[in-house]
């Protein structure tokens, strides 16, 4: 992943910085300019708690090339206590045990590498609470 594209995502990926609509209260991760629920442009910054609950999940057996050695791995749509939803991997457990309702802690992990000589790309993954 080219460095400039990676660099601008750092606040969201490293610190779980999100946006909260000042008008309707919807929490958006990552933050956006316009609220998709009410179109308000009044946003405040919030930090997500490093935990969440699985909404839906799968176990990827045929992965993209970058994740070849990690398969099979679980992926889930996770909802944080603030109501933000996002997609991530769930690790440090048997992937078959990941399913709706599972409680997670979010830990800082290496997500992917830009080949053998490129940058290392970090973010958060779920681990069973």
């Amino acid at each position: 992943m080219p460095s400039p594209r990676y660099h601008r995502e750092i606040p969201a990926r490293y610190r779980l910085e999100a946006g909260k609509c000042s008008d309707c209260g919807k929490v958006l991760y990552p933050a956006r300019k316009v609220c998709p629920a009410c179109r308000s442009q009044e946003m405040e910054k919030v930090n997500l708690s490093p935990k969440g609950t699985v909404v839906t999940s799968t176990v990827i057996h045929v992965p993209p090339d970058e994740f070849l050695n990690e398969a099979p791995y679980a992926m889930a749509v996770v909802e944080t206590p603030e109501g933000a939803r996002f997609m991530t991997q769930v690790v440090d457990c048997d992937p078959a045990t990941v399913g709706p309702g599972m409680e997670l802690d979010l830990e800082f992990r290496l997500i992917q590498k830009e080949g053998n000589s490129g940058i290392l790309c970090y973010g958060h993954k779920g681990v069973p609470a």
């Binding site: 490093p50 050695n69 990690e70 991997q89 690790v91 440090d92 830990e107 800082f108 992990r109 290496l110 997500i111 290392l120 970090y122 993954k125």
Partner: peptide
Amino acid sequence: PGLDEDTITISVAAGR
């Protein structure tokens, strides 16, 4: 360590 763990991720976890 897992494939997704290194000195940086361990440092962040310990640092938090």
